[in-house]
């Protein structure tokens, strides 16, 4: 019953209670204590620790899929079983695994959030060093920090106002915005999103330039690639497809099941898409999938050199 929703147990305390805060503080102290203890771990022990943790993490999901799941219907009225207890160890473990899934999912999301902060930390570190040591182009780093601080302040104030102040639901509409909502909109929609779109759209220029300079019919493979690309591009052009299909439709019998109907651009593209493109991409997908499965097994068992377990 480790993860069941109960009011007060060893794992749960009343909100705001001193017992809860004391346990939180102790957990943080123990956690950091363990971290510093790990700094003293000898090299041999490090690999064992990381391998063990990786294996246990993966073992949860392996057991989730392979262990007998609790029978449906035994969870009616919030009670797992008529007689209140699992019958044996197998059923006990099955219930434990199933109950643990929300917690495991939470842990994965929360840890991922902390790890996403690595990118933020890295940028702050690099540009902070540039700024404080007055390295070349430190002015740009100052601009970066100004923009970052502005976004953080505006973002948090806006978040607080739109969720925790009376009448916050009205702030959804621009007609009810205050200065902080305008500031948030200017920075987020007016600048950040707009520049994001601009960055991605620059690639269009490079694609055109690369296609012009490098796309040459020098081999059988290049010819096949170019021909298929042209058919796909023509099928994407509605006007071309319309005119081509119209021309084919004038051939006697084309619209009433005659063989000519198969030569409309739409039908040609459909046939190539269904019978050549799809299996080709599916074959690539299978190859990638087999690789991912093998990689998954190797990561779980820490057989991968230079992977998570390398110390």
């Amino acid at each position: 019953m480790l993860f069941a929703q109960v009011e007060k147990t060893f794992w749960a305390e009343g909100s705001g209670s001193s017992a809860l805060w004391l346990k939180i503080l102790m957990a943080v102290v123990v956690g950091f204590g363990l971290t510093f203890a790990m700094l003293k771990l000898p090299a041999r022990g490090r690999r064992t620790l990381v391998v063990g943790i990786t294996f246990l993490a993966g073992l949860y999901w392996v057991l989730y899929y392979l262990w007998p799941q609790p029978l449906p219907g035994r969870l009616a009225n919030g009670s797992p079983l008529p007689h209140g207890q699992p019958r044996d160890l197998v059923e006990s473990v099955g219930f434990w695994i199933k109950d643990a899934q929300p917690v495991v999912s939470d842990f994965a999301n929360i840890l991922s959030s902390f790890l996403l902060g690595l990118g933020v930390f890295s940028i702050i570190r690099i540009h902070g060093r540039k700024l404080f040591r007055r390295q070349p182009d430190w002015g740009f780093s100052a601009v970066l920090f100004l923009a970052m601080i502005a976004m953080v302040i505006v973002g948090y104030v806006n978040y607080y106002q739109t969720r925790y102040t009376p009448g916050s639901s009205k702030l959804e509409l621009p007609s009810n915005w205050g200065s902080w909502q305008f500031a948030n909109d200017l920075l987020f929609n007016g600048l950040l999103q707009q520049m994001d779109a601009a960055m991605f759209s620059v690639i269009a220029f490079y694609i055109l330039s690369a296609a012009y300079r490098a796309f040459r019919i020098r081999s059988v493979e290049a010819t096949i690639l170019l021909s298929t690309a042209l058919i796909v591009i023509f099928s994407l052009m509605g006007i071309v497809a319309y005119e081509w299909n119209n021309a084919v439709a004038h051939i006697p019998g084309a619209t009433t099941g005659g063989i000519a109907g198969n030569f409309s651009l739409t039908e040609i593209y459909k046939w190539i898409n269904q019978n050549v493109q799809t299996p080709a991409i599916r074959g690539i997908d299978f190859g990638v999938g087999i690789g991912a499965l093998a990689m998954g097994l190797r990561l779980w068992l820490s057989l991968e050199r230079g992977g998570a377990s390398a110390a």
Binding site: L208, A211, Y212, F215, R216, L236, M237, V240
Partner: peptide, 20 residues
């Protein structure tokens, strides 16, 4: 507008290959 952009791409590839 996409039609014009795609047509430009096709022309660019053709011009490059004709040049080759």
């Amino acid at each position: 507008t996409l039609h014009f952009a795609l047509a430009l791409l096709i022309v660019a590839v053709i011009v490059g290959n004709v040049g080759m």
